[in-house]
Design a protein around this nucleic acid. Structure first.
Lengths: 172, 172
DNA sequence: TTTGCTATATATAACCC
DNA sequence: TGGGTTATATATAGCAA
């Protein structure tokens, strides 16, 4: 696409393939972010590299978008979307999700205002519980546990994003 | 970016915003597809338009990519739904998707038969590192650490969602 | 919502590190 | 894996339909 136009077919050379993936992935994630900011959209992207490594990008976060996606395409909902089109609606579902998201954000604000130590202690505790639930998949783990784990995830993800942004601001 | 360079900030004009979303989304999905073909990667992208409509793209499908999380990191399998090709989805398209999904599930079952202990160990290790980075906010934690933490978060989030969905299926 | 147009802005292949 | 360079290939803002 520059010194030479290439066919869109599998790249044989391993080095070239990996390099291509790395560069294009970066570009696509950047473009996804631009799209989100420019248009007020929510985006999530999950890529597996040729070597099987996972890369993801989300705005405002992968989980926020994933939650909404799963709600639309949940277990009891056999709707099928094409890559360029989607069937209508479920405005009610979307409204509910947005409401839930707002609650989560409020919760975040409250959490952020707490003392760092308390927050850290609570989080570590929750984190351990979360990893336990996730890893062992105990059947006794109820919805509440899972939802609590989700809340923690959201919180952690936001913190990570903040750290990353701060870092990028400093570096860029 | 053409007749004029624009700032990356929310576009006020509604018509312009929608148009921009439509064009850029198409481009990004195309680039994601190119990446997948060129590099043999698996990609999934889920976008919500400014108006709240869902657009998704996956190669080979959104569900295949989502399921790969589970195959790699958890004893889960489930249906998220799928997206594919283009154009008006009809029964034929749906049947094809369902068929493909079944194949992918079989593939997943095989993948899941690998040592769970190894997976668990790897994940716990990653989880501990993540919590450490997040809680202590070590400045030495570079972008790579944060991005790794993000990757883990995404994985965990998917697992939790699946557990929740499974639970909801059983209970309700 | 999407498409066509066209002058620019970006992305990127091939090559280095 | 990223990071840099340079000559091209693409993407795209602004308008119009």
């Amino acid at each position: 696409m520059s010194r030479k136009k290439i066919e869109i077919k599998s790249i044989g050379n391993k080095r070239a393939r990996d390099s291509c993936f790395s560069k294009r992935r970066t570009t696509i994630f950047n473009k996804a972010k631009e799209l989100a900011i420019l248009c007020g959209a929510r985006v999530a992207a999950v890529f597996f590299s040729p070597r099987g490594r996972l890369f993801s990008f989300g705005y405002p976060s992968v989980s926020a978008v994933a939650n909404r996606f799963l709600a639309d395409h949940g277990p009891n909902n056999s709707t099928v979307s094409s890559s360029t089109q989607v069937e209508g609606g479920t405005d009610a579902v979307i409204r509910e999700l947005e409401h839930r998201e707002r609650e989560l954000k409020d919760e975040l604000v409250r959490a952020s205002s707490q003392s760092e130590l308390l927050r850290e202690a609570k989080m570590r505790e929750s984190g351990e519980r979360m990893m336990d639930v996730v890893l062992h998949g105990r059947d006794e783990a109820g919805l509440n546990d899972l939802e609590e784990a989700e809340r923690l995830l959201t919180e952690v993800e936001v913190i990570i994003e903040e750290r990353k942004n701060k870092m990028l601001n400093v570096e860029g």
